[in-house]
Every structure is written in C-alpha cells, then in structure tokens.
C-alpha cells in the first residue's frame, strides 16, 4: 500500500476493466515518473468524454451529437441494417469497407445467467426502426460465440414475422471468439457470404 494520492490513483485504475492491481500500479508510476506525460490533456479528454460523447439516438453507436456520423451520412444505404453487440464491432466492420448500410448496436448479448434478457438490450428500438418499411434486410452480426449465436436465434425468430430479409454473417468466422478480433479479410468475406435466415 502506498500513501494518499498514489494509492487512490492505483485504486481508480484498478477499477477499470482488464486492469489488474499490477497494471494499475505500473500506469500510476509511469505517469508519476514521465515528466513529458500530458496530464492535463488526459484530464480534459476524460471530462469532454463525459460531457460531449453520447450514444446515437437512432443506432446506439457512440456519437458527439444526437446522432452518429454514420446515421447522418446520406451516402449510406438506408435499406440495410447490420445488428452488432457493441460499438467496437462497428469499428471492426467499418475497417473491412465491405458494408455501406446502417448499424444497430444492441448493447450486449442475451445472457440470462448474467441477468441480461431481450428487454435489457436495444431490441425494442430495432423494431421501431423497422416499422416504417424502409429497411429491406437485417444482417445479424453478433459475436460468433455462444451468447452471440443465442441472440441471433432470438432475433431471427422475432423478425421472421416481418416482411424483411434476415441474414447472418457466414459461418467462416472461427467460433468461440469476439468479432473485434476477426481480421478484415475474414470479416469482409463473412459479409459477402452471409446466409439467409428468413426471407
């Protein structure tokens, strides 16, 4: 245990996801020892993040306005919606340059054991977006792991009753992993070879 500010900072870093006590200590000492480290810039960014960055009212992606830059872009195809778990999946798919439609970020995957059912995700908002008949295809791009597949099963069953084509990313994606770790080529191919769930 260190005293005062140093320990408090280590405790704060340690609360962040993926950072254990050792990493927290390393980061705190790095900042302490590196005079050129711009502390006020980091503090400013954190404050700005809290004040200015929100989730897009339409798709749930990160946005600095009411809506995100993808939803505001008139060149995107409004008839196509790709459903993903997290905003970081939008980044992964954008890197492939294979997809020119819009997104819908669910905010996670269905996992009852963790207390997450359909009502805890942005599924109601998805149905609202599909209500006016503009969208002709929904591509389900949840993670290729168990919870992602279960979420895809649920969505397929839910959307079956609507007059919309539902597709799932091709099964070429290795199972068990997170979508964000798929390389661009594999992910791009998965888009091209997506399979029809219901038509």
């Amino acid at each position: 245990m260190y005293e005062g500010i140093v320990q408090e900072l280590i405790d704060e870093f340690g609360r962040l996801p993926g950072i254990g006590p050792k990493s927290a200590q390393r980061i705190a000492f790095h900042i302490l020892q590196t005079e050129t480290f711009d502390v006020s810039r980091l503090a400013e960014l954190l404050t700005e993040l809290r004040e200015k960055v929100h989730f897009c009212e339409i798709c749930g992606n990160v946005a600095e306005q009411q809506t995100c830059s993808i939803c505001r872009d008139p060149r995107r195809t409004p008839t196509l919606i790709c459903v993903v778990e997290e905003a970081k999946d939008v980044v992964a798919i954008e890197r492939t340059r294979e997809f020119r439609g819009l997104y819908h970020v669910l905010g996670g995957a269905i996992s009852p054991i963790d207390g997450i059912g359909p009502d805890e995700l942005r599924i109601r908002q998805l149905l609202q977006r599909l209500a006016d008949g503009t969208v002709q295809e929904v591509i389900i791009a949840t993670d290729p792991n168990l919870e992602g597949e279960a979420t895809a099963t649920y969505l397929s069953r839910l959307l079956q009753t609507l007059e919309i084509r539902v597709t799932r990313l091709a099964s070429g994606l290795p199972v068990g992993g997170d979508l964000e770790y798929a390389d661009e080529v594999t992910l791009g191919r998965a888009f091209e070879g997506r399979t029809i769930v219901s038509n």
Partner: peptide, 14 residues
C-alpha cells in the same frame, strides 16, 4: 480464448 485463432475454439463455451 477470445481471439479468433484460439486453439480452444468453442470447446470452452457454456
């Protein structure tokens, strides 16, 4: 295990 090239694949899923 979460990397898509993991040797475990889906073998350690619920």
């Amino acid at each position: 295990v979460r990397r898509t090239a993991s040797k475990f694949g889906a073998r350690l899923e619920p």
